[in-house]
Computed example of a mutant assay.
Amino acid sequence: MKKFLICSLLGMVLLLDCTAQQGKPLIRFGLLSDIQYADSDTKGSRFYRNSLSKLESCVGDINSKDVEFTINMGDVIDRDQKDLDTVLHILDKLEQPLYNTPGNHDYSGLKDNRLLYEKLKMPGEYYSFKRGNWKFVLLNTNEVASYSNVEGTWKEPELKSMFEKIKKEGGHNAAAYNGGISSKQVQWLKEELEASQEKGEYVLIFSHHPMGCADGLTALNKKEIVATVSKFSCVKALIAGHHHEGAYCLIAGIPCIVIEGMVETAGQNAYATVELYPGKMVLNGYGRVHSRVINVKGN
């Protein structure tokens, strides 16, 4: 009887220990998009000046959530490069690393893209980083765009080709505020995913422009990008901004999450924390951002 009680107690201790471990995420990080600050009057639902106070609150709260890092998916400013330092001063208050990818508005008035990437402390025009067995890929869907200084470069013909293809297929995303990724970036993405697939890593892909869920606001060559990523089971979600209303859908069986924009509304904020667990991803939304629990197969 005594032996049975001891075994039962040991079993309960092990069960409680496993439950406690399950309760702690493998990784927790912050997520935001479309701050879109400008020292300008409100236009429609966009309260440009209000973004600063929202961002202050967002940064303070994210710092309290014990995150490992934060990802910002672009449109830090709305129209003037002089506003960039104002926003970055607040973002610099984040206590853990910040990883940026730019948005279309961030190129406004810019003549040299490298200046933007340096300000945003990006190691390259597009890049990836790892935490544990997870790889985080930050695409730059502004690389090939009418606003990102491609005139006279090898990227200009690629931009023309993208617009022609969209027109031929009757698409709705051939707009001046949308961009795509170059053939070189597509090849880089493929190599990144091949390496992760071989190593048994799990991948989350971030971009400013969505690959779906937002008709008329998607990346110019979204079909090519989706055709590439859908070949790899290591890709667990596509996460983007640009569409301020937010959205969720499945694209080729891959969860596509579009985060609501911070610039919208006078006082309601918009940001999230993401927790990665074995078998699931939990997005905790704050303000206008919807919370979601997404099953993650194979981890």
Rank of each mutant, 00 (worst) to 15 (best):
L16N: 05
D17V: 10
C18T: 15
C18L: 15
C18F: 14
A20M: 15
P25M: 02
F29H: 14
L32E: 12
D34G: 12
D39R: 06
S51V: 10
E56G: 03
E56H: 14
S57P: 00
C58T: 14
N63H: 06
D75E: 00
I77H: 00
D85S: 15
V87N: 13
I90E: 03
K93M: 10
L94P: 10
Q96F: 03
H105A: 05
D106Y: 11
N113G: 14
K119T: 06
G132A: 02
W134I: 15
L139E: 08
N140I: 06
T141Y: 10
T141W: 13
S146D: 11
N149M: 09
N149D: 00
T153Q: 10
K160E: 10
K167G: 08
Y177P: 08
K184Y: 03
V186P: 00
Y202I: 01
L204T: 02
S207T: 13
M211L: 13
C213V: 14
D215A: 07
T218V: 08
I225A: 12
A227S: 15
V229D: 04
S230T: 01
K236V: 08
L238I: 11
G241W: 12
H242A: 02
A247Q: 03
A247W: 07
A247L: 03
I251C: 04
G253M: 07
V258Q: 04
A272D: 10
Y277K: 11
G279R: 09
N284P: 03
V289S: 07
H290W: 01
H290Q: 09
H290A: 09
R292I: 06
V296G: 00
